[in-house]
Design a protein around this nucleic acid. Structure first.
Length: 561
RNA sequence: GCGCCCGUAGCUCAACGGAUAGAGUACUUAUCUUCGGAAUAAGUGAUGUGGGUUCGAUUCCUGCCGGGCGCACCA
């Protein structure tokens, strides 16, 4: 439809002998200003020395001479906007499309047949899956779904951090601990988390253990058979299954794992092969010094003076592994925005090794969550762990409605949390206060779910009394709901173009509010009303659209709630 | 100090250079013997500050004020 309108305008401009200009056709934010709107007259007016309103009127007249039946009317408004109002017939065809396409409704072809690799949720072994991971997972999963909806062939990947000095510290503690007896199997994850925290503390306080910890680190990096290597591999397996359990609960699956330990090996080789071409030896380490023109990034160490790869080299190795394995057309990776400059350095260096690595990579960065005002860091302990938060939210939901099944309870709790994360543009920090951030009323995940569930159940209820949705007898009036439904694919496209799920959130809220408002003023199941079948179709289209939108956010629609 | 990002109702967030800056929450009211009240309707309330570019600036540029993050062997 947008293209259609653009073409109408272009041919009108030709008739007026105005040379081509860049103009916009968009959905006005206020639906009273038409279904589509263009600023073409304002853009051209000055160029040709004419009043924008007059110009708009002549464009309008020209288009009206041969008006397609999809368009009902055209108006000139404001300082020279040309607003297009679509016809009932067109909206009716949209409803038909929604009902026929079901879960496919809203898809686009922006990335048709492209290979997209999305890396997200990367866990740190030995550290619990905390709220920062939850945030990363929520945004990542939504981007995965947007990518799928845009016709891409999507591969999901995660990059567990399985090797570091910090992990060596944890292994040091665990080896000490098993001397006193075996680790409590029921509490393994907690024990490992504590070991990590304890290791960090001991290392800072007690210099005498530094040599031993470094030795452990060396053995882990070189995969040398030893007690520490055995301990490490055992912990790794348990941590990964823990990770799979929690991400599965959240609705994510990963096609592939690339471990930091693998990436470190590959990264080290790449760095060594490209020294001194790209990298420079300095003070026993190998560093990357950016060109003079890149004053915004800093010199960084890739291989430290102990000969171990740093995070930078590991990410270089990761690029190589990713592109060799998958040849993605777009490689998206999601991290918090503390890492922006880190990746700028890595990608700048990567550009000199294989330009494709940098050209096809796209960094989505999100803010951090502060919890009751306190910064979160699992290394220091006392961090809100994702599962604890989910369970706490679940309890609040139980207080509200006691008889929900556990599965539905979890679906609602996840929706409440994911909504809070996705409603804001990624990149901003979220000030997470469980008291206010996690409401179930008003703008909230459960509100959207509730509206969806209720609208689906209306259709069922109508069936029981013999009323079936049908588009045959439509009122001549065009409802706001029809206008809003028509916008859904455009909103999805916009979210896909800048990988920003929050546009979908805003849209769904608007749709749900409009539906609820209509619902409050319309008796939908009404045997006396000849428009009832049409209203039921409308309800069905709303329910489907809400459901599809929630899917894109990684939020499930429960059967009932 | 250098670099990047951010300042919008009391609070949490929107606004792809466009039309009267939208929501929720809180507060004040109203609807409701209901097709599922996790609802609906109404009211109060905001672009940190000074310039500039533009037909038009919350949005772009710039000065100031305030905040966050990053800056050599952590991840």
């Amino acid at each position: 439809m947008k293209e259609k309108i653009e073409n109408l305008i272009k041919s009108a401009l030709q008739n007026l002998e105005i040379e081509e200009v860049v103009f916009a056709v968009e959905n006005p934010s206020d639906i009273n200003n038409g279904d589509y709107s263009t600023n073409v007259a304002m853009v051209c007016a000055k160029k040709i020395g004419k009043n924008p309103k007059e110009l708009a009127l002549s464009v309008k007249e020209l288009i009206e001479k041969n008006l397609p039946e999809d368009i009902e009317k055209i108006e000139v408004a404001g300082t020279g906007f040309i607003n297009f109002y679509l016809s009932k017939k067109y909206f009716k065809s949209i409803l038909k499309k929604i009902i026929e396409e079901k879960n496919e409704w809203g898809r686009n072809t922006l990335n048709y047949n492209k290979k997209i690799l999305v890396e997200h949720s990367s866990p740190n072994l030995f550290k619990p899956f905390h709220i920062g991971h939850l945030m990363n997972n929520t945004i990542g999963e939504s981007i995965v779904r947007l990518a799928k909806y845009s016709g891409a062939n999507v591969t999901t990947m995660t990059f567990p951090s399985d090797i570091s000095l910090g992990i060596a510290k944890a292994v040091f503690i665990l080896l000490e601990k098993i001397k006193d007896g075996p680790i409590d199997v029921d509490n393994e994850i907690v024990e490992y988390g504590n070991a990590y925290v304890e290791g960090t503390r001991r290392y800072d306080e007690d210099e005498s253990i530094h040599n031993r910890v470094k030795e452990i680190a060396d053995n882990l990096y070189s995969q040398k058979p030893s007690d520490e290597w055995d301990m490490f591999t055992k912990c790794k397996a348990i941590n990964i299954s823990y990770f799979e359990r929690i991400t599965n609960r959240l609705g994510s699956k990963f096609d592939s794992y690339i471990y930091e330990s693998e990436a470190g090996i590959v990264g080290s080789e790449i760095v060594e092969d490209n020294t001194p071409k790209v990298f420079t030896k300095s003070e026993g380490a190998i560093v990357y010094i950016p060109d003079e023109s890149r004053k915004d990034i800093n010199t960084s160490v890739f291989i430290n003076s102990q000969d171990n790869p740093t995070y930078e080299a590991k990410d270089m190795g990761l690029l190589s592994l990713k592109f060799n394995k998958y040849q993605p057309d777009i490689s998206i990776f999601i991290t918090d925005n503390q890492q922006i400059s880190h990746f700028e350095v890595v990608l700048d260096a990567a550009k000199k090794i294989n330009p494709i690595w940098s050209e096809k990579s796209f960094h989505v960065h999100h803010g951090r969550m502060s919890f009751k005002g306190e910064k979160m860091s699992s290394r220091l302990g006392g961090v809100p762990v994702a599962e604890e938060l989910l369970n706490a939210v679940g309890e609040d939901i139980t207080k509200r409605s006691a008889d929900l099944e556990n599965e539905i309870l979890d679906i609602i709790a996840i929706a409440a949390i994911k909504f809070t994360i996705l409603r804001a543009a990624a990149g901003k920090d979220i000030n997470f206060d469980p008291e206010t951030s996690l409401s179930f009323e008003g703008d909230s995940g459960p509100y959207l779910q509730y509206t969806t569930v209720r609208s689906f159940s209306l259709i069922e209820k109508a069936k029981e009394v013999g009323l079936i949705p049908s588009l045959e007898k439509a009122s001549s009036e065009i409802t706001n709901l029809e206008k809003i439904l028509e916008k859904f694919p455009g909103v999805v496209e916009r979210s896909t173009l800048d990988w920003s799920p929050h546009h979908v959130v805003g849209y769904l809220l608007f749709l749900a509010q409009s539906f609820n408002s209509w619902y409050a003023n319309t008796k939908i199941i009404d045997k006396e009303n000849p428009e009832t079948p049409y209203n039921l179709s409308l309800t069905q289209a709303v329910a489907q659209t809400l459901k599809n939108g929630l899917y894109l956010l990684g939020i499930k629609t429960p059967e009932k709630m």
